[in-house]
Design a protein around this nucleic acid. Structure first.
Lengths: 128, 128
DNA sequence: CTTGACCTTCCAGTTACTGGAAGGCTTATG
DNA sequence: CATAAGCCTTCCAGTAACTGGAAGGTCAAG
């Protein structure tokens, strides 16, 4: 099938699919006219990539996951390790965001938000 | 003062400070030997920027905040608006991350993580 | 035969830096 | 006085993961 159909069925933009080919994540065949010809297996790979990216795995993690996926003899421990690392990352990011949220929510609630120039948000940012 | 001292006192890497000058966030003077000469006011600006970035404001938001900060007549409502928008962004990102976390945590707990090839994480990613 | 929807490649831009090379200035030491 | 360490300078390139756009080839319908 052509890239348009793959895009539709995988949910990935055509630009992204071409990019994934560029960086060697998929290798579609080529028709005589130069059009990319995707097999069902390519579609599956792309859908896999879409889901892995949706979970926040980096492209390089995705590459590894793809290899693990295709290696019928891999140990599930290898996959679990990657997923756990990603989980740790997510938890770190969550903490960071929660802290930002708290500070900002506090400041917003302190700020009158009217047409007077007085503003606790800026005061805080200026270090006072 | 020279860039090294400003870096130390603001907590920003020298590279970042030069970059901020490039994009017009600060405009230090120059000594005869070509070295940047920062005033106290420049240091304050940079520290302000550091804190704003730490709250996750984009560079463009920071530019706006800086203008508002320097405009003694601005309405606090303008600042509050920006902060609220940032808060909404943070909340969206938090939701996204929490969902990732849930899915991933579930999968990790389901995965034996031993040397058998069977792995629910990959099964899920492959869409089964 | 032309129109419109596909498809192709290639180049540039995004965000916010970061690293490194090549070289000038300053200060302390041998 | 020479030199070495430790500042500082500019400029170029790279990062992550795409995204947008230009210029142009292909295909099916009318």
């Amino acid at each position: 099938m052509n890239i348009g159909e793959v895009s539709e069925r995988s949910g990935l933009p055509t630009k992204t699919i071409r990019y994934y080919e560029d960086i060697g994540l998929v290798e579609p065949l080529r028709a005589e006219n130069g059009y990319r010809q995707f097999r069902e297996s390519d579609l599956h790979k792309l859908a896999f990539l879409g889901r892995a990216r949706h979970m926040g795995f980096s492209i390089e993690d995705c590459r590894t996951l793809l290899h693990l996926w295709e290696d019928r003899t891999r140990a599930s421990a290898d996959v679990k390790k990657l997923a756990k690392e990603r989980l740790v990352q997510i938890d770190r990011k969550l903490e960071e965001l929660k802290e930002m949220r708290n500070t900002l929510a506090h400041l917003v609630s302190c700020c009158a938000g009217d047409d007077r120039p007085d503003c606790p948000i800026l005061s805080d940012l200026s270090g006072l």
